[in-house]
């Protein structure tokens, strides 16, 4: 963090006040010019997003720790990891991975000045997010009818809180992306405002990355430990 930069060149002495929350539209990507100089040269909103993501690491870290701390202590005769449908979940996992791809393609499209690419891929990303949520709804309801629910045992509590928290993050992301998509349909997003898409992308990829961890730690590892291996 020791980025000791003394900006004392001309024109730097009277920066605009405020650097207000929404002047995301003034800043643009730091590739595209800095109307508002910052001490590090990094955009405020981008620093905010990365700081938020850093903080979220601890949020999901605590949830995953909760799950793993008591993993393997299921009460006898209550449902557990044997209910996991790994092929089904791995499809879900890939839906989310692919939505990350469409997200970067949306950003690349915008940066190349291609509004059509931007709109298509924004929509595809949001749609894949919805597919993931639908899959999660189906999975949850299946578990519910198989007597695996958050009030059944500790495993259920920590599983549903963790995956539910992740699902809530996906939901927020889908709303955000749909808003961006509608905005791009109505007004278009100028390439120099690509930060709008980049920031939502950072959030979206982070949610995807969390699922990578959940898929391995919550699904695969406990499933591999149950009696008889992968059956």
């Amino acid at each position: 963090m020791a980025r000791a930069i003394a900006h004392d060149e001309q024109g730097r002495l009277l920066p605009q006040a405020g650097h207000g929350d929404s002047d995301i539209h003034d800043h643009g990507h730091d590739d595209h010019g800095g109307e508002h100089p910052t001490s590090t040269g990094l955009n405020n909103v981008k620093v905010l997003m990365w700081t938020f993501i850093a903080s979220e690491c601890l949020l999901f870290g605590s949830l995953i720790s909760t799950y793993l701390a008591v993993e393997g202590r299921t009460i006898p005769n209550t449902p557990g990891p044997e209910l996991f449908d790994i092929p089904y979940t791995s499809v879900s996992a890939f839906v989310l991975l692919f939505s990350s791809l469409s997200m970067v393609l949306a950003l690349a499209g915008l940066q190349a000045g291609d509004q059509r690419q931007l709109r298509i891929w924004l929509f595809v990303t949001a749609a894949l997010g919805l597919v993931f949520l639908g899959g999660q709804y189906y999975e949850f309801s299946t578990f519910y009818f198989e007597e695996f629910w958050l009030d059944k045992n500790f495993l259920g509590s920590s599983f549903f809180l963790l995956t539910g928290f992740h699902g809530a993050h996906v939901t927020v992301g889908v709303i955000w992306l749909l808003a961006l998509w509608l905005y791009s349909l109505r007004y278009g997003i100028a390439p120099e405002k690509s930060l709008l898409v980049e920031i939502s992308g950072l959030y979206w990829h982070f949610v995807d990355v969390v699922w990578i961890v959940i898929f391995a730690v919550v699904y695969l590892i406990p499933y591999s430990r149950i009696e008889g291996g992968g059956h």
Binding site: S39, T40, N44, L48
Partner: peptide, 17 residues
């Protein structure tokens, strides 16, 4: 978050960390 970004990014010219 706000104060983190403020201190990282809003320092006057010459005000290194």
């Amino acid at each position: 978050i706000n104060f983190f970004v403020t201190i990282i990014n809003m320092r006057a010219p010459g005000m290194s960390l």
